[in-house]
Design a protein around this nucleic acid. Structure first.
Length: 762
DNA sequence: GCAAGGTC
C-alpha cells in the first residue's frame, strides 16, 4: 500500500471527491484537521489500477501563491515606474496561505504519489503547478498525477481516478504570462497616473487625497471605458424631430390604437402630404387580420452572469451583493455552486428530484406538483445556452426551504430567483394568442393588435411629432453583457471590476442601477483617448486573451508572448508619459488645480451660468467638451439632460459677472465670447458678451449659420432647438402637435400648418 | 499604496 496525497482547489471539492471515492470502501472515511482550519484532511483506502492506496485528500483555497516585484521595487518611490516592465518578480506564498503550505509539506513527506484534483481550467492548472512546487520541494521523490474531471458525480470521479494524466505545462504557462503582464501594466500605470495627478488637482471625491489611488488595470479600465463611451454617446446626441401619423378607433369595446406602418418620417413635407391624403379620405378598410400563437420560451439554465443580470433587473441588487448572498446560500447548502459559466444541464442530472423537493412550498409548490404530473404535459427537458465550463452545473436549488429565520430579504430573493428560474427551465413555453389587424386609409397602412372590425371611421387621425432620444445610460445588466462579450474578466470576477470602479470614485450608480462616469473617471479616459491610445478599450484585453490561448495550446511560448507584449506596453507607457500633458489637460477641465503644491495657479472648478430651468434643482455650468467645443450643461446630469450647445466658432468663453436683465429663471450670467475670426460671417464681432437664456439674437443667428459645437452635426437644420434648452424639449413643437392632433373633422390645411412652422424647411 | 485570478 502506498500513501497518496490528493489536493483539490477548494475544501468543498476535497470533501465531495473523498466522499465519492471512499463510498463502499473498507473502514470508510476519516476526517482530521490540518494546520489551516478550513482545509480538512480526509483519509480512506482506494485502489487505483490495481494499486492499493492509502489516500489523504486535502485542499487549497484557490491560488496558493501570489506574484509580486522583489522587495526593492515594491515601494512606490523605489524606482521609475518604467522599470517595472523588467524589474524581477517572484512568486511567493502569502502570509494567510502559510498554514496550507505547511500542511502540504508535512503530508507530502510521507507520500509516494501526489494527485492534483484542481479545477479543469487554466487557473486550475496553474494552481496545480503551485501545489507541485510546494510538495515537490518537500519530497523530491513524489510521483505526480493530474485527475481530470468536470462534475462531482460518482462515475466521473472514479473515471478520473483510474485515468490519471500529466499536468499541462502550457495551460499553466498561459496563466503565468497573464499574471505577469497584469502586474507590470497595472503597477506601472497606477503609480504613474497616481503620482502625476493626485497632488496637482483638488479631487473632491477623496476625503484624504493623499491616500487616493488612481488605479489602472487591464480589466477595470475597459469596464470604465464602456461607461464613459455610452455617456459620451448620450451627451453628443442631438435630438432629431420626426413625424408620424397616429390613428385610433373608439368603440363600446374600447380604444384600438393603430400605428403607421411607415413608422415615422424625418421629412415633414412628405409626412404632411400623406397626412392630408388620409384626412381627405379617412375611411379605414381592414386589409388583413392575422391571428397567431405566440410562444414565450423558458430561459436557459442559470449561469453566474445571468444570475447577476436578473438580480439586478428584478431587485436592483448589485452583482457584488448578489454573489455574496449566493455564496451564503451555497455554503448553507441551499443552492449549487454559484460561480459557473455552464448554462445547460448534463443529461445525468436528476431534474425531477430537484423539482420534487419544491412541492411543499406555499407559493410555487403547486406549480412544482403540476410539473411532475405527466397528465399536465407541462414538463420539458431544458435546453442549453451552449456554454459549459466543465466544472460546475448551472445554478439550481439543492435543498428545499420555505425561508430560514436567519435569511435577509436578499437571501429570500436570490433563493426564490434560483428556484423559479429552475422551474421555468423545465417547463413548456408559455403560449399566448395575438391578433394583428392591418388597415388601409387612402393607401397608407396602419396596424394594431387587438379586435376585428371591418370598415370604420377613425375617431382620431393625427400628425404627431417626436424627437429621437439618446440611448439610456448603461445598466448593471448592460455592463455585464458588454464585459462578457468583450471577454473582460471572468464570471467570478466581473462584479469585482464593477465594484472597483465605484470604490475608486471612477463611476457612480444611480438608484435605477445605471452607471455614469464621475469627473475623475471621465477625465482619465479622456486623457488617454486624447493621446490616441485605446488603453481604455477592450481590445487590449482581447489581444492578451488571444495570446494566452496560443500559449495554452502550445502554439506560442510563454517567454515569446511576454517579451512582445511587455515591449509594446512599455513603449506605450513611455509614450503616454511623454504625452502626459493630455492627462493634465483633461483633468484641468474637471478639477481645480491644487494650490498646495503649484502655488499661484488658481482655477475655478466649474463656472456657474444660471440655475437650471428644467430640473430646477441644479446649476448649469459652462463646460468644454472633450473635443474642445463649449456647452452649458446641467450639473444634475444624467438625471437632468438640459444642455445648451454654443456656436461652433467659439474660441474662448468665460462667465462674466454681468447678469441678463430679462431671462428667467435667473440670475443668468452673461458669457464673454471670443469667436474665431475666419469662421464667423462678415458683420459679426469677434468679441461678444452674450446671454444663453434665449434673448440673444446674435448667438441665435451664429448657431443658425455656423451650427453648434456639438459633436454629431450631420446635415440637420440648424434651428431654434439648438438655442433652446434641449432637455426642455421644444415647447413650440408640442403645442403644434396638439393643435393638429384634434379629431380628423378639424380643418387643418397645408397653409395652416405652414404658418405654424415658419422656421421649418417647407 | 499598484493587477487579476483563485477562494473563505
Amino acid at each position: 500500500m502506498i500513501n497518496v496525497l490528493n489536493v483539490a482547489e477548494k475544501p468543498s471539492v476535497a470533501k465531495s471527491v473523498a466522499t465519492i471515492l471512499s463510498r463502499n470502501q473498507q473502514h470508510g472515511m476519516r476526517v482530521r484537521d490540518g494546520r489551516s482550519r478550513y482545509n480538512k484532511i480526509f483519509e480512506f483506502n482506494y485502489v487505483i489500477n490495481g494499486q492499493p492506496c492509502h489516500m489523504l485528500m486535502t485542499s487549497v483555497t484557490g491560488h496558493l501563491m501570489e506574484l509580486d516585484f522583489e522587495d526593492r521595487f515594491r515601494k512606490w518611490h523605489s524606482c521609475d515606474p518604467a522599470d517595472l516592465y523588467h524589474a524581477p518578480v517572484r512568486k511567493y506564498v502569502p502570509e494567510d496561505k502559510i498554514d496550507i503550505k505547511r500542511t502540504l509539506e508535512e503530508e507530502a513527506r510521507r507520500c509516494q504519489w501526489l494527485i492534483l484534483w484542481l479545477d479543469c481550467d487554466r487557473e486550475g492548472e496553474n494552481i496545480a503547478f503551485e501545489v507541485m512546487d510546494v510538495c515537490g520541494a518537500a519530497n523530491h521523490n513524489l510521483t505526480i498525477w493530474r485527475a481530470r474531471f468536470s462534475a462531482l458525480i460518482d462515475r466521473e470521479i472514479h473515471e478520473a481516478a483510474q485515468n490519471l494524466i500529466s499536468p499541462n505545462q502550457c495551460f499553466s504557462d498561459a496563466v503565468d504570462a497573464r499574471q505577469e503582464i497584469d502586474l507590470r501594466i497595472g503597477a506601472s500605470f497606477t503609480r504613474f497616473q497616481t503620482m502625476l495627478l493626485r497632488d496637482k488637482f483638488v479631487i473632491d471625491s477623496a476625503q484624504d487625497d493623499r491616500n487616493l489611488v488612481l488605479s489602472y488595470g487591464p480589466c477595470q479600465f475597459p469596464t470604465l471605458g464602456f461607461i464613459v463611451e455610452r455617456y459620451w454617446e448620450i451627451q453628443s446626441h442631438e435630438p432629431e424631430e420626426f413625424w408620424t401619423i397616429n390613428c385610433s378607433h373608439k368603440s363600446d369595446e374600447g380604444i384600438a390604437n393603430f400605428s403607421w406602418m411607415r413608422g415615422h418620417l424625418f421629412d415633414y413635407t412628405s409626412a404632411v402630404i400623406l397626412y392630408e391624403m388620409c384626412v381627405q379620405e379617412p375611411t379605414a378598410t381592414v386589409m388583413k387580420v392575422h391571428q397567431q400563437e405566440k410562444r414565450k420560451y423558458p430561459p436557459h439554465p442559470l449561469s453566474t452572469i445571468e444570475l447577476e443580470k436578473r438580480a439586478s433587473r428584478y431587485f436592483r441588487m448589485s452583482s457584488e451583493l448578489t454573489m455574496k448572498v449566493a455564496e451564503d446560500l451555497y455554503q448553507a447548502g441551499f443552492i449549487s455552486y454559484p460561480r459557473t459559466e455552464t448554462d445547460g444541464f448534463s443529461s445525468r442530472t436528476d431534474l425531477h428530484t430537484i423539482v420534487r423537493e419544491q412541492q411543499e412550498h406555499p407559493v410555487w409548490g403547486s406549480y412544482a406538483q403540476r410539473l411532475l404530473d405527466p397528465g399536465t404535459e407541462l414538463w420539458r427537458n431544458p435546453g442549453s445556452g451552449g456554454h459549459d465550463d466543465k466544472a460546475h452545473p448551472p445554478i439550481h436549488p439543492t435543498k428545499f426551504s420555505a425561508g430560514e429565520s436567519a435569511w435577509s430579504l436578499d437571501h429570500h430573493r436570490v433563493y426564490e430567483l434560483v428556484v423559479r428560474h429552475f422551474l421555468a427551465c423545465v417547463s413548456q413555453p408559455a403560449i399566448g394568442a395575438e391578433t394583428i389587424v392591418e388597415i388601409d386609409i387612402a393607401g397608407e397602412q396602419f396596424s394594431a393588435s387587438g379586435r376585428v372590425i371591418l370598415v370604420f371611421l377613425p375617431t382620431t387621425l393625427a400628425l404627431d411629432s417626436g424627437v429621437t432620444r439618446p440611448p439610456p445610460l448603461l445598466s448593471e445588466a448592460d455592463l455585464l453583457s458588454c464585459m462578457d462579450k468583450a471577454g473582460i474578466g471572468t464570471d467570478a470576477t466581473m462584479h469585482d471590476h464593477i465594484k472597483k470602479l465605484l470604490d475608486r470614485f471612477y463611476a457612480t450608480k444611480d438608484t435605477n442601477t445605471r452607471f455614469s462616469p464621475t469627473n475623475l473617471g471621465e477625465a482619465l479616459v479622456m486623457g488617454y483617448d486624447d493621446m490616441g491610445y485605446e488603453l481604455w478599450k477592450p481590445n487590449l484585453r482581447s489581444m492578451m486573451e488571444f495570446d494566452m490561448k496560443q500559449v495554452s495550446m502550445g502554439c506560442k511560448r510563454k517567454a515569446e508572448v511576454l517579451d512582445t507584449c511587455l515591449q509594446q506596453m512599455k513603449a506605450c507607457f513611455l509614450d503616454a508619459r511623454v504625452n502626459k500633458v493630455k492627462l493634465l489637460e483633461a483633468m484641468a477641465i474637471f478639477f481645480g488645480r491644487s494650490d498646495r503644491y503649484g502655488g499661484n495657479d488658481h482655477h475655478v472648478a466649474a463656472e456657474i451660468v444660471r440655475p437650471c430651468g428644467l430640473c430646477q434643482e441644479s446649476n448649469m455650468v459652462l463646460r468644454r467638451s472633450r473635443d474642445g467645443n463649449f456647452m452649458v450643461g446641467c450639473l444634475g446630469f444624467p438625471q437632468c439632460r438640459n444642455a445648451i450647445w454654443l456656436p461652433g466658432p467659439v474660441l474662448e468663453a468665460t462667465v462674466s459677472t454681468n447678469i441678463c436683465n430679462c431671462c428667467t429663471p435667473g440670475p443668468v450670467y452673461l458669457i464673454q465670447f471670443k469667436f474665431r475670426q475666419l469662421e464667423i460671417p462678415p458683420g459679426f464681432n469677434v468679441n461678444h458678451l452674450g446671454c444663453i437664456g434665449g434673448c440673444d439674437e446674435t448667438l441665435r443667428q451664429l448657431i443658425e449659420i455656423c451650427g453648434t459645437g456639438s459633436r454629431v452635426q450631420g446635415n440637420k437644420v440648424p434651428s431654434q432647438n439648438c438655442a433652446v434648452a434641449r432637455g426642455g424639449s421644444l415647447v413650440i413643437e408640442r403645442s403644434c402637435s396638439i393643435y393638429i392632433c384634434r379629431s380628423f373633422n378639424s380643418k387643418v390645411t397645408m397653409f395652416g400648418i405652414k404658418k405654424l412652422f415658419p422656421w421649418h424647411r417647407l
